[in-house]
Design a protein around this nucleic acid. Structure first.
Lengths: 338, 338
DNA sequence: CTGTTAGCGCTTTCAT
DNA sequence: ATGAAAGCGCTAACAG
């Protein structure tokens, strides 16, 4: 039992509960002498206010929730890092939830957030999310929601994203300029706007360079690594295989890396690969992979900052702010250590 | 405003607040007819109990805190994953805090946890933590604390760790058996038991194989990547450089990888490297790095399970349980894709 | 400047 | 089987 509460403090000091409360909150109604005494005693008795009592009374939790599909993924880990930095600055607590890429999980998690547990929510949707009613409900119950990276396809929400279309184009163009004639696009199935936009960028690059679009070169992958690897292996094993690969998410680039290793295909001599990723992983991947690095940390920070702006202004998404950050193409110089 | 509370539900149903409360908690005191009506109305009005009111009343938060030095680090990301899985099973919420390897941060974070915000704490200490008074205080105030991975050096606490000494020995022995004559040990400075134990394992392996111990080969690194790289570069640039490197943490292995790339030193032909790491990163690192993979996900799960056992039994650390999990040495077959 | 009081939403005796 | 009432610890309006 921590047990040190206002009542005990007040008894010890011979003051009333409310005076102690006011003294601790540095109210102008309290004399400086008394304040000192109270502060000293609070320190001595190791007093910490009960967050539940305060939350109940003030109808404020000083807490935000972060809902993400997974965390064993550099992008989200870095994003959380950014979120935490801002939250800490603001004196907020951060509840983290993993949906494990499962819509059912996302739905029940968001529902649990209705009761007033948090003052705001940051979310990156999971791959198979089709409806966001659970989130609009939450929003209507008074909780501001900011979507980051994996955002709903509609226009009416506060979002923080990167320039996915442009980067899909840039990445594919990079392969074309490197001499690739037959470029495959590895996508993840689903309605995620990010993947969609990247694929559209891929197609636009082909059009721009007068390369015919072959739907058979667009590979719909899943969340199953082994299944994905089988698909990629099949793609790269047959003759007439592509000489360029655009992996629209990091995971698929890693799978490609594996498969190439496995079937002894040299990157970049036999196949060139360009992938979305982030700085840290990019540095670990074979130096021969070119990557589009998303500013994950900055996305986290920007999302949290936007959310806090909304919380402070009690803006539930009436004035919608949309932020788009720039990714950068990173091409590592080939190395000698191979 | 969510606004749906027991009072409104009760009014709508023409029942008393307490009856509705009981019905929702499936009390035997309420008739099954009434229960159905209540449940239906709660569903309809999208009722979610206020966690603060409940927490205040029941003196229980259904929340745990996870305090870690950083998250943009595969080990901790995977550990959190494991923790979340267990917490979700138990219906608990998870507050995450990053200390950013800063003791001051760790101290103030832990202090904020005193007020009853959480029912238990999982912590991995930061590198420069020397005293754990803040944690023993927290524990005495009634909050069970489980230490994982980076645990205090003393014996009296519930911990979840890996077999660091054995693995330090195993890793070094691996290098010796691979023919290395001059093996350097990259450590991080500080009182972390993990690093200490790994270094002791390194020394033990040398003794076992009659290799003289040269203190100049033990490099004390820091949290500064650039400084570390400079140290490693210096180590590997001079003639008479080591032919084997034991990196006691993943970060240092990555730095080594960079430096070797930079100064065109071939791994493993010119320098063999073995490092602590975890499965996912191990697979990204050059196939020529051998790694000791820590079961990060399992550590997370085991830690959370231990904590919940303590919470349920109101065990504040009187009966101390210590869990040691096994790491495994992973040697990737060299690949053709280089 | 300090104290009294009501009440946030919920659970839990205790009555009925 | 249902309801009334007290109280968890805190804040804020109102008195003094």
């Amino acid at each position: 039992m921590s047990g040190t509460n206002l009542k005990k403090l007040a008894e010890e000091l011979g003051l009333s509960i409310s005076s102690v409360s006011k003294a601790l909150r540095d109210s102008y109604e309290i004399g400086s002498e008394t304040k000192k005494r109270v502060l000293a005693m609070a320190e001595k008795m190791n007093y910490q206010p009960n967050p539940f009592a305060r939350g109940l009374r003030k109808r404020k939790s000083i807490t935000i929730a972060v809902v993400i599909p997974e965390i064993a993924n550099n992008f989200f880990a870095l994003a959380i890092d950014g979120i935490q930095v801002i939250a800490q600055q603001k004196g907020y607590h951060v509840l983290t939830y993993l949906t494990q890429e499962d819509f059912k999980n996302e739905e029940s998690t968001v529902k649990h957030l209705q009761g007033g547990r948090v003052d705001g929510v940051l979310i990156s949707l999971c791959g198979n999310t089709t409806s966001i009613k659970h989130l609009t409900d939450l929003n209507q119950s008074g909780v501001p929601v900011v979507y980051f990276d994996r955002v709903p396809d509609m226009l009416e929400f506060p979002t923080v994203t990167t320039d996915d279309y442009e980067c899909g184009l840039k990445a594919t163009e990079h392969l074309i300029l490197a001499g690739c004639k037959k470029i495959a696009c590895l996508c993840v199935a689903g309605f995620l706007s990010t993947t969609q936009k990247r694929r559209l960028g891929y197609e636009a690059a082909l059009v721009k360079h007068n390369i015919p679009f072959d739907p058979k070169l667009v590979i719909q992958c899943s969340n199953e690594n082994t299944a994905n690897r089988a698909l990629i292996k099949k793609l790269l094993s047959k003759k007439g295989r592509p000489d360029g690969i655009f992996a629209s998410v990091e995971k698929l680039a890693i799978s490609t890396y594996y498969v190439c290793n496995d079937i002894k295909l040299n990157i970049p001599k036999q196949v060139k690969v360009v992938s979305f990723s982030n700085l840290r992983t990019a540095s670990l991947l074979s130096p021969s992979l070119t990557t589009i690095a998303q500013p994950a940390f900055e996305i986290g920070k920007a999302s949290a900052e936007l959310l806090f702006r909304m919380i402070e202004k009690k803006n539930l998404g009436n004035r919608i702010e949309k932020i788009v950050l720039q990714s950068s193409l990173i091409q590592r110089k080939s190395s000698a250590a191979q």
